[in-house]
């Protein structure tokens, strides 16, 4: 099977190597941070004013090191890490001890995935279609208007847009809730009310991500297509009288799509890292907020869990991309 041996196998090896390196980095980097999780926990205990015998503190420290998996040399910790990871266990969270990291991720993941898959797919589709059309009819006034709007929006940091939307639609004209993913105290029984509540809470974060996302995809697609318009095969088809719609779709967009599909898979992989800033601004209960709080509290295991999830997701995205690319571009063959 030349396909397996020459195409699939090297890519799977590459995939595993990427995850291995990712895991190693995820292990090293938090340990370089000036935050010591054991110290943090001890501080939390002593800050409440309880007097503790130094010997007791020493004992607690030992116990914590043991529980957190921070005992022994770095090498020993490193091997222990892979031993756990291969069993699909990210260990317990330090801050919300002893809840396993996996459980925390499982709670946050649906919120993030729901928010980001929707906005990414939506802005990718809309941005690409509009970008392609705007490039093809670049001399028309409406196309130039669209381009100007996108050009103004794109460089705005999305947290500024998020804050502006908050001020406008949650404070000045309070149509949408200010924070959270759902109304506090709502019971999670599936009902129209619940769905509506969740959608209402997700609307502003989604809108802020979609606005910037659409503008970004629009600009790249417009650039790609306007470069393609000078290609010989498009000029030739135009001379031959092939209709504009056909050229736009089958000649320009079909060819410009190739890098855009790669971009989409990468963005979909990145979802598993959460939308850190947007989620924080809106206090949205997703992975981004979780990651943010784990960094603040030096929660190594949680940080590692989320980051590694993101590494695996992006690597998987790239692998899937590699496998489907030959279908999109006939010039690439399984070799």
């Amino acid at each position: 099977m030349p396909f397996l041996k020459r195409y699939l196998l090297p890519r799977i090896v590459q995939y595993l190597v990427v995850i291995f390196i990712g895991g190693t980095l995820v292990f090293i980097i938090p340990r370089l941070m000036p935050v010591d999780p054991v110290q943090q926990t001890l501080q939390r205990i002593t800050i409440q004013g309880a007097f503790l015998d130094p010997r007791a503190i020493e004992q607690i420290r030992e116990t914590l090191l043991e529980l957190y998996g921070l005992k022994g040399s770095l090498m020993e910790q490193y091997f222990a890490l892979w031993h756990r990871l291969l069993r699909g266990d990210f260990g317990p969270s330090y801050v919300q001890f002893p809840t396993p990291v996996m459980t925390l991720i499982k709670i946050s993941l649906p919120w993030t995935v729901g928010l980001l898959v929707t906005t990414t797919v939506l802005s990718w589709t809309v941005g690409n279609i509009l970008g392609g059309i705007a490039a093809y009819y670049s001399h028309r006034r409406w196309a130039q208007l669209m381009e100007n709007v996108a050009m103004v929006i794109r460089p705005i940091p999305y947290y500024i847009i998020a804050l502006a939307l908050l001020l406008l639609l949650a404070y000045a004209v309070p149509i949408f809730p200010v924070t959270g993913g759902f109304s506090i105290g709502r019971s999670f029984v599936l009902s129209w009310g619940l769905v509506l509540d969740i959608l209402k809470h997700a609307f502003l974060p989604a809108l802020s991500l979609a606005i910037v996302g659409t503008a970004t995809w629009f600009m790249t697609m417009r650039l790609l297509v306007s470069n393609l318009l000078a290609e010989d095969y498009i000029v030739y088809a135009q001379i031959a009288g092939v209709q504009d719609g056909e050229i736009l779709y089958n000649y320009a967009i079909r060819n410009a799509m190739l890098p855009q599909v790669t971009g989409l898979t990468l963005s979909l992989g990145q979802i598993f890292g959460g939308a850190l800033i947007t989620e924080t601004v809106f206090s949205y209960p997703g992975l981004g907020t979780l990651l943010y709080s784990s960094i603040n509290s030096g929660d190594y295991n949680l940080m590692m869990g989320i980051t590694l999830l993101s590494v695996v997701a992006i690597a998987t995205g790239v692998l899937i991309m590699d496998l489907i690319y030959p279908f999109l571009d006939p010039r690439i063959r399984y070799e």
Binding site: E231, D232, Y233, Y236, A237, I239, A240, G241, V242, Q243, E246, N250, Y251, R254, N255, L258, L328, D329, P330, R331
Partner: peptide, 26 residues
């Protein structure tokens, strides 16, 4: 019209038959 440079004048992501179809279909 028969153009110069025959590699670049055919759409790289479509089969020759599809190119014939869009030219004739026009």
């Amino acid at each position: 019209y028969v153009p110069q440079g025959s590699l670049s004048v055919l759409n790289p992501v479509r089969r020759i038959g599809d190119t014939f179809r869009s030219f004739v279909g026009a």
